[in-house]
């Protein structure tokens, strides 16, 4: 690994918090309710949000929820690497589950879906990274 790559890796692992409190605290009740449903499904059935390190969780959350938003909006998804493809796999399952369990989501326009998933992403980052009580997230190695 080159010196710069090592520095980049080290910087990534010394990640900074994005949220210092629940980002959805001041949201409207409908968004809270909807995000709550989406969040609950992830927490009960998924494992990808719980990689052991904070910097991985950041990537997992962004990768999978980003692709989920695209799928929910019917946009094409690009998977140039195996890692991207793996995110897509989890996103496909999430997209299908959401459509089945929460049919209201299919009635929303694309920009609302994007906004909703953005809120969900923020909430998940808060729960699993920035607001997490897990003291091992910041450990620098695996």
């Amino acid at each position: 690994m080159s010196v710069t790559a090592k520095q980049a890796k080290a910087a990534e692992r010394k990640y900074q918090p994005i949220y210092t409190s629940n980002p959805l605290a001041d949201c409207d009740p409908l968004t809270q309710e909807r995000v709550g449903q989406l969040e609950n499904y992830i927490m009960k059935h998924c494992l990808w949000q719980f990689n052991s390190r904070g910097w991985d969780r950041r990537k997992q959350n962004a990768g999978i929820l980003g692709k989920t938003a695209q799928l929910l909006c019917g946009e094409p998804v690009d998977n140039p690497t195996p890692l991207e493809k793996c995110y897509w796999v989890d996103a496909v399952c999430l997209d299908r589950a959401y459509r089945e369990l929460f049919p209201w989501i299919t009635t929303l326009p694309a920009d609302e879906i994007k906004a909703l998933i953005k809120a969900l992403h923020a909430r998940l980052d808060w729960l699993t990274i920035d607001g997490s009580l897990n003291t091992e997230l910041i450990v620098q190695n695996y």
Binding site: L127, S132, L133
Partner: peptide, 9 residues
């Protein structure tokens, strides 16, 4: 309760 308020050491 959620994980930001409920997690043992």
């Amino acid at each position: 309760e959620d994980l930001t308020s409920c997690l043992p050491k």
